[in-house]
């Protein structure tokens, strides 16, 4: 993918352009959120708990009387760091395992895929419980836990995609030419399995945000008073009746962001897939 291809791809694709813009916006909030927050996101106002929208608190307040808008803005950063960090871990290790599991020596293939199976059989909740038991909850343990959770899925996708690629004619050609393993992997396999991996990555970013919210729901998320979207949604579930907007704002942002990531991911997949590009 060249840097020029994204702007080109946007032409005639308003949904894609809009999604990319939205992602860029969310990302910049992630970077500058603290500066944009209109109020102190940690200021507890015990007389103003669970308020609806007002002139002073545009989106209302939470169960501590803290400004929801400010918390939503600063909550982007940990959400994104966790989601992207976890996806990066999962993508790098998962792809490595997947390719090795499909392309390595038979013994390597066997051992790696069985290890992936073993990792896969650990439920995320158990990993999270264990991680929290050891290190405390927090951004770092969330990244590791969620990353590890999604490694096997990446590995599986990379594995089956590599198997498919291995059967294609050009691979025979590469092999016949005596190409080195590294060459085969980087020139032949990776470009051809990138499409499903990109789809998987977008799914994973979205899923990581959701998993983080689920773990927050179970009390295993970001350490308060630092907010994350997931943690806000998890807490807000308890206040559905009292302060319905509390759950709606972060859910809406979460949903729209995930939607944008997915739309962008789908389009990227089309751009990246060499076969689709030929059309």
């Amino acid at each position: 993918m060249t840097s020029a291809s994204i702007p080109r791809a946007m032409r005639g694709q308003p949904a894609f352009a809009f999604s990319v813009a939205l992602i860029a916006m969310v990302a910049s909030i992630g970077v500058f959120g603290g500066l944009l927050a209109p109020q102190d996101p940690f200021l507890i106002q015990s007389q103003l708990v669970n308020q609806g929208s007002s002139a002073s608190h545009w989106l209302g307040t939470d169960e501590f009387g803290r400004d929801l808008l400010s918390r939503l803005l600063i909550g982007v950063q940990p959400t994104l760091i966790v989601a992207i960090g976890a996806t990066a871990i999962a993508a790098v290790f998962g792809t490595m395992f997947g390719i090795a599991g499909a392309h390595g020596r038979p013994v390597t293939q066997f051992i790696i895929m069985r290890c992936v199976d073993i990792m896969l059989s650990f439920p995320p909740i158990l990993l999270a419980l264990l991680a929290v038991g050891f290190w405390q909850s927090g951004v770092l343990s969330l990244i590791v836990v969620i990353g590890v959770v999604y490694i096997p899925q990446f590995a599986r996708v990379a594995h089956s995609a590599t198997l498919q690629v291995s059967r294609m004619e050009f691979m025979e050609a590469e092999r016949a030419m005596g190409a080195s393993t590294a060459r085969v992997i980087f020139n032949a396999i990776l470009p051809n399995i990138l499409a499903p991996l990109v789809v998987q990555a977008t799914l994973t970013v979205a899923a990581a945000i959701l998993l983080e919210s689920g773990l927050s729901f179970l009390g295993l998320g970001i350490v308060p008073p630092q907010p994350s979207w997931g943690q806000m949604i998890g807490t807000a579930r308890g206040y559905l009746a009292q302060n319905p907007m509390y759950v709606i704002w972060p859910s809406l942002l979460l949903g729209v962001t995930i939607l944008a990531i997915n739309v962008a991911g789908d389009r990227l997949r089309d751009i990246l897939d060499p076969r689709l590009r030929q059309e």
């Binding site: 507890i44 405390q136 009390g219 350490v223 308060p224 008073p225």
Partner: peptide, 25 residues
Amino acid sequence: HQNTAVVVQSDLAKIGIKVKLDLPD
């Protein structure tokens, strides 16, 4: 338990005591 800790943290910050929360299961 957790919310009480959050309030204590915020109140003690006002008199200069920095509180780090430890929240295991």
